[in-house]
Design a protein around this nucleic acid. Structure first.
Lengths: 187, 187
DNA sequence: TAAATTTCTAAGCATTTGCTTAGTTATGGT
DNA sequence: ACCATAACTAAGCAAATGCTTAGAAATTTA
């Protein structure tokens, strides 16, 4: 009769995600993952197949975290919802010391075109979903503008939020807040 | 009598810089540098001391390249100069396949707080210099606003340009252009 | 108590990594 | 032709890397 599973994959993946978030992909060895996840290398390979497999699951876990923030935005109304998301996302991005920022952005930066197909797909999907939600919230406040016009505004906010999360690593919080305020005052 | 140096350090460093720009730091091995630079590992260590030494020089080389763009901006006038710099920088950032983007941004993302002190200093200095030039060009068009007000606008543009260069890896050129136009229309 | 399965431990593998060493070749000046 | 130096080639080193294997221990159920 089988021994019960002693670790929950979602829990160990969350630990792995945090390590990748702090260190990046290449600078995170399997031995470090073993320490952080609290399971041995054999179990890592048995459950996830490879280091890359762990990373793929980590990206999905990260998306799940972001989904909670996006859900909060979807439950709110208009531009104010997007703005609140900016702040919430900034706070979320600052949870980690070291590299921190946005794991999706970091992964684009570090791996670029070398990222595994599945990872690229997950990340692009997230970016597109976020843009769609921005557009929907913009529509809340503006029933008459064209779809194309709102798409451009959503796209603008998408670039802006990427700038915010990258800049927040090296710039003062007051400068980030100034950026957000100016970004939304222009809409 | 000494044999003349057969390679020019600045030239081999430029090749190294391009490789780091495409690949990032960790994913670039010394053997890859050897191939790209066209000199052997012994010469690399003799001239630069370590892989990190090559990287430090590469960052300086990259700054030198950016300096040319900044000089162009300084030779022009007002907000139009800054806007032209955005476009020039975007074109410059797109020279490299793979990771591309901005090597300074990439390095902040990849190495974060683990970057060598000298590299951090060089990068922070560049960011501060850029902000100062932005502020100066904003003053060209606005003789009366407070120093603090213009500093905030310069800071805003600094975050914006970081967003642009990160986003340009994954978003369409038309969306990047839209972002730049919207950013400057709000100033 | 035994069986079945999970998870662990320890060791190992081939390769890659940053870096060093020693001897050789190339080159320019005298 | 010789000397001095630069740069190369080849080999090597220890450590790290991603991953595998084999046997042992742990755990649950019947």
């Amino acid at each position: 009769m089988a021994r019960k599973k002693a670790y929950i994959e979602e829990q160990v993946i969350e630990k792995a995600m945090n390590l990748f978030w702090r260190n990046g992909y290449e600078s995170t060895s399997v031995r470090m993952l073993e320490n952080e996840m609290g399971i041995n290398q054999f179990s890592i390979y048995a459950s996830f197949g490879s280091k890359q497999g762990v990373f793929k699951e980590s990206i999905k876990c990260y998306k799940g975290k972001l989904k909670e923030l996006v859900n909060d935005m979807e439950a709110s109304h208009g531009k104010a919802a997007i703005k609140a998301y900016f702040y919430a996302f900034n706070n979320f991005a600052k949870q980690n010391i070291g590299q921190g920022g946005c794991l999706i952005n970091n992964t684009f930066s570090e791996l670029g075109t070398n990222a595994p197909e599945e990872v690229m797909t997950e990340m692009m999907a997230f970016v597109n979903e976020l843009k769609a939600v921005f557009q929907k919230k913009l529509r809340d406040d503006d029933a008459t503008s064209s779809h194309d016009y709102l798409a451009k505004q959503a796209s603008f906010l998408l670039v802006a939020i990427q700038g915010m999360v990258v800049a927040s690593k090296v710039m003062a919080n007051s400068e980030i807040e100034n950026f957000v305020e100016m970004t939304f005052s222009s809409l």
